[in-house]
Every structure is written in structure tokens, then in C-alpha cells.
Amino acid sequence: MVDHTLKGKTVLVAGGAKNLGGLIARDLAAQGVRAMAIHYNSAETKAAADETLAALRQTGVEAVAFQKDLRTAAGNADLFRETVAAIGQPDIAINTVGKVLKKPIAETSEDEFDEMFDVNTKSAFFFIKEAGVHLKDNGKLLTLVTSLLGAYTPFYSTYAGSKAAVEHFTRAASKEYGAHGISVNAIGPGPMDTPFFYGQESADAVAYHKTAAALSALSKTGLTDIEDIVPFVRMLVSDGWWMTGQTILVNGGYTTK
């Protein structure tokens, strides 16, 4: 019988230095994983990565960190190759990388378009590709997308549009990797209480988002708290293995498909 528990497993978390990715890494460490690699994008994030590494190691997890630009196929290939060399073949790969842009279509430049699709689409595709090559049989693959995939709204065309492609990457990969017992899913959080959200929003928009979910009144901030996403990640990369090929919107009733 296949063991789908987390104890003793090896994990790779892209974007694992801080915010939701950092919390996911710490939570999985607390569940008894054996080893973990966290990815971070830039030198500015190294201090946060070092702090997360220290927290992981305090739990007894063998932990390493790699700075990579995942906007390229080579960056993703290097990340997986170096992870395997450092801590072994991963059982679980989680990609939390993303970038948001809130802007009317008419004001969006070609450079902005290219950057959004490089960060949100190209990086996700090649992370999924490398996971298919390097994950152990019966592994778990998870990508973070956005609950805007269930929204009818202006201004987020390049953000939601670049994440929308990942929904089909997820379906295709689940079919292609299923013969190896690998489950593949995506989670779409609602607007989260992180710096990722606030940098794009006016005070009026923040106030709206804090009341937009059916369960907003029960949230600490009115938004999706990162602590409320973590249990779904934990479930999907462990005993929730029978769920595959799905995009699940976890947002307290902010949007639905």
C-alpha cells in the first residue's frame, strides 16, 4: 500500500522563503518531512530565506535554499537538479511563485505583459515539466493560482489571464503523470493579507475586498489569511492524493466557478 503521509518525505517549495510559501514550508516541517529545499528569486529575499532555513532546521529537517530565476526553463531545470543533488529526489513539489498587476488593458505595456506571463505562466509550465521528470512515483505536485479565475472583473487581465493557463497545465499534467501515481492540483486563494496584495490596491479597493467574501466577518483581516490556505496544501500533498487535475478556489466564498 502506498504511503501518502508526510513523515519522512522530501519537499521542494518554490517561493518558499516568506509569506504563504514560507508558512507552507514551516508547516510541512512540523508534519515530519525529512528534507526540504526552498527557492527564492532575488538577493533581496535572501534574509527571509535564511530565517526560514533556520526555522526548518530547528525542527530537525535537512534544509537547503537556492536562488533561481524561474522565468526560464534553465532556472527550473537547475532548481530541480540541485535539489536532487542536495537532498534527494523530491516526493512533493509546490510552486507558490506569482506576480500581480492591476491595470486597464489599454494602459498595459508589452513589457508588462511579457513579465506577467514569464512569472506566472512560463515559470509554472517549466516547474511542472521538471516535476514530471524528477518527482518520485506517487508524488504530489501543487501550483498556487488565484481565485480571480472565478471572477468577472476588470483590471486583472494579465494576472488572471496568465494564471488561467496554469489551470490547463494542471489538467494535462495530471493525465500525463497519473501513470506514475503523481497527483497534480492547483489552489486559487482569494486576496491574501500579504504585501503581494496591498501594493496593487487603493484604500477603497482594500476595503471592498475585506468585505467581499461570504466568510469575511470571520477572518482576522477580512481577507484570505495565509494560515487558512495551509491546511488545504497539507491535505492535497498527503492523504488528499485521490484529488487530481483540479483547480480549487479556497477563498471563504469570495468567488466561485
Rank of each mutant, 00 (worst) to 15 (best):
V2Q: 01
D3P: 08
D3W: 02
G8H: 01
K9I: 12
K9N: 06
V13A: 00
K18F: 06
L20M: 11
L20Q: 03
G21C: 15
G22C: 10
I24P: 06
D27C: 07
L28C: 00
A29V: 01
A30L: 03
Q31R: 06
G32P: 02
R34S: 11
M36I: 11
M36V: 06
E44R: 11
E44A: 14
T45L: 12
K46L: 10
E51R: 10
A54I: 10
A55S: 13
Q58C: 04
G60Q: 02
V61R: 00
A65P: 03
F66D: 06
D69T: 13
L70T: 06
R71T: 15
T72C: 09
N76D: 12
T83Q: 02
A85N: 10
A86L: 11
G88C: 07
G88A: 04
D91T: 08
I94D: 13
V97M: 08
K99F: 15
I105M: 01
A106T: 15
T108D: 15
T108R: 15
E110F: 15
F113Q: 09
F113A: 12
E115P: 11
M116D: 07
F117V: 10
F126H: 10
F127L: 08
I128C: 10
E130S: 14
G132Q: 07
V133R: 15
L135A: 04
K136C: 11
K136M: 06
D137C: 09
G139K: 07
G139N: 08
L142P: 06
V145I: 09
V145R: 07
L149Q: 04
Y159D: 08
Y159A: 02
A160F: 04
A160E: 03
E167C: 14
H168P: 10
A173F: 13
A173R: 14
A173L: 14
A179L: 05
N185F: 13
N185D: 13
G190D: 08
M192L: 04
T194H: 01
T194K: 14
P195R: 03
F196R: 05
Y198C: 01
D204P: 14
D204R: 13
A205S: 11
A207F: 01
H209G: 00
K210Y: 02
A212S: 11
A217S: 14
A217Q: 15
L218H: 10
L218R: 12
K220T: 14
T221Q: 09
G222V: 07
T224P: 07
I226W: 00
E227F: 03
D228M: 12
S238I: 01
D239V: 09
M243Y: 11
I248M: 03
V250I: 09
G252C: 06
G253L: 14
Y254V: 05
Y254F: 04
T255H: 07
T255S: 02
